[in-house]
């Protein structure tokens, strides 16, 4: 399920400090972060910090070290810091990942580690982007259960097979790594984006839900599923390992089934 992305094998090339005192090996890394502060500048620029980090550290720890010890003005989002909340999606070495799930030892440390905000969404400050366009698409596909039947006194039962049908797409944490990795979304931000389609998929294929026809109608839009070019950037970017492109293809098939 988890997608550990490894660029090289640094495990063998570790430097250990004084043995005994430091059981965990340390690295010297260079962190390059794309900075932007609309109050003081009109253009973004790059800041660089050389850091000494431990072998167990993640990119998020490096960002924390900078913010807490070197430059408090560095801004980024993070909440749980353990790959669940989806706050810290960013572009690390050109690929969308969660900073809290990317271990430094898995990156190429011979070069500076490039950290940028995710693309396609308006940058507010440093690594913080305005997520509103992303959540707008999310709201439009109605990410909630619609069932007009009488409310049952207990739970709404579902067979294991029916539950398994949409299991993959329940994993989404709305980090926007997929949508902001999509070249079609970069152009004009009009495309619904992979995340919205994944979350529509979660309800379209839920046997308890009754508004599938409406979600399919919404995604049959000019900017809906048909703008997907199956470049698989979204599947590669997803920190939860969701088969995003496959989910989009399944929604395409469902649109056909309902329209023809």
């Amino acid at each position: 399920m988890s997608t550990a992305v490894t660029e090289n094998q640094n495990q063998d090339a570790q430097q250990t400090d004084d043995a005994g005192e430091e059981a965990i090996p340390t690295y010297d890394i260079v962190l390059r972060v794309r900075r932007y502060d609309p109050e003081f500048e009109t253009e973004a620029h790059w800041d660089e910090w050389p850091l000494t980090m431990y072998g167990t550290d993640r990119v998020l720890d490096a960002l924390h070290k900078v913010k807490w010890e070197l430059d408090g003005s560095l801004s980024f989002r993070r909440s749980c810091a353990h790959g669940v909340c989806g706050s810290d999606a960013m572009r690390i070495n050109g690929r969308n990942r969660l900073a809290c799930k990317t271990l430094l030892k898995d990156l190429d440390l011979s070069k500076p580690i490039l950290v940028e905000p995710i693309k396609g969404l308006p940058c507010e400050k440093d690594l913080i982007v305005d997520m509103e366009p992303f959540f707008q698409s999310y709201r439009e596909i109605m990410p909630f259960l619609v069932n007009e039947d009488h409310t049952p006194t207990g739970e709404r039962f579902q067979s294991q097979d029916d539950r398994a049908r949409f299991d993959d797409t329940t994993k989404c944490i709305l980090c926007a790594a997929c949508t902001s990795s999509c070249p079609v979304f970069w152009t004009d931000g009009q495309y619904f984006g992979p995340a919205a389609i994944v979350n529509a998929h979660r309800f379209i294929f839920d046997s308890r839900d009754q508004a599938g026809d409406m979600r399919l109608e919404i995604l049959n839009d000019k900017e809906g599923v048909w703008r997907c070019r199956t470049t698989f950037n979204c599947t590669e970017a997803c920190p939860r390992g969701i088969q995003v492109t496959k989910a989009i293809a399944e929604v395409k098939k469902a649109v056909f089934a309902s329209a023809l």
């Binding site: 004009d188 931000g189 619904f192």
Partner: peptide
């Protein structure tokens, strides 16, 4: 079959770029 309002959002425009569909 479904009769329900689709949630809508405020108009969003950043630096002249419209992000609403």
């Amino acid at each position: 079959k479904t009769k329900i309002q689709v949630p809508r959002s405020r108009d969003l425009e950043v630096d002249g770029v419209k992000y609403n569909r």
